[in-house]
Amino acid sequence: MTLHLNASESVSQKILSFLESLTKQGESIEIIDDSIYKYEKAGILKGLEQIENGSVYSSEELLEELNK
C-alpha cells in the first residue's frame, strides 16, 4: 500500500513515531518525503518522454557504445 499524507507537524510526528515503532517490531516500511516524491516523479516523466521520442537505448546498445 502507498500512502500520501498531508498533515500538521504534530500529527506527522505522531505518525512517524508510530511507524518507527513498527520498524522496531520488524515490519518493513519505506518513507518517501515530498521532495523525494517530486524528484522521482520528474525522473519518471522524463523517462516516459524519452521513450516517446525514441531516445532510449537497449542495454546491448549502451554496452556496445561504451566498449568503443
Results as ranks from 00 to 15, higher is better:
1 M>F: 12
38 K>I: 07
52 E>Y: 06
41 K>M: 07
23 T>Q: 15
62 L>V: 13
54 G>D: 03
61 E>P: 03
38 K>W: 05
46 K>H: 01
4 H>I: 12
57 Y>M: 03
65 E>Q: 05
25 Q>S: 11
60 E>I: 07
57 Y>D: 03
50 Q>F: 07
10 S>M: 12
35 S>K: 08
60 E>T: 08
41 K>A: 10
18 F>R: 04
23 T>V: 15
4 H>P: 10
13 Q>H: 14
32 I>P: 01
37 Y>W: 10
46 K>C: 00
46 K>T: 00
19 L>N: 09
37 Y>C: 04
59 S>I: 12
61 E>G: 06
66 L>F: 06
20 E>S: 10
15 I>N: 04
31 I>S: 02
23 T>E: 15
10 S>H: 14
61 E>L: 08
3 L>I: 15
68 K>F: 01
52 E>T: 06
33 D>H: 04
36 I>N: 12
18 F>Q: 04
64 E>W: 04
53 N>A: 10
63 L>D: 07
5 L>E: 12
68 K>W: 03
68 K>R: 05
55 S>K: 11
14 K>W: 14
25 Q>L: 13
41 K>F: 10
65 E>M: 05
20 E>K: 06
60 E>C: 00
65 E>P: 02
62 L>E: 08
5 L>V: 15
53 N>L: 05
24 K>I: 09
47 G>H: 07
3 L>T: 13
8 S>V: 03
3 L>Q: 14
26 G>T: 06
25 Q>N: 11
62 L>N: 08
42 A>R: 11
33 D>M: 00
64 E>S: 09
9 E>V: 13
7 A>N: 09
18 F>C: 02
39 Y>F: 10
11 V>I: 15
24 K>D: 14
53 N>M: 06
59 S>P: 09
26 G>Y: 14
49 E>A: 01
12 S>T: 15
24 K>T: 12
61 E>V: 04
42 A>L: 13
1 M>T: 14
39 Y>E: 11
43 G>C: 04
46 K>E: 01
67 N>F: 02
59 S>G: 02
22 L>Q: 15
35 S>Q: 11
29 I>S: 00
16 L>W: 09
13 Q>R: 14
8 S>W: 03
63 L>C: 02
40 E>S: 04
50 Q>T: 02
19 L>V: 09
10 S>D: 15
47 G>E: 02
20 E>G: 04
59 S>R: 08
7 A>E: 13
27 E>D: 08
52 E>N: 10
64 E>T: 09
21 S>I: 08
66 L>H: 00
21 S>P: 12
56 V>D: 07
58 S>A: 02
65 E>A: 05
50 Q>G: 05
29 I>H: 00
2 T>W: 12
23 T>M: 14
1 M>R: 13
52 E>R: 12
17 S>H: 09
64 E>C: 01
26 G>H: 11
21 S>F: 14
46 K>I: 00
5 L>F: 13
32 I>N: 08
28 S>V: 02
37 Y>A: 07
19 L>R: 04
5 L>R: 13
28 S>C: 00
33 D>Q: 01
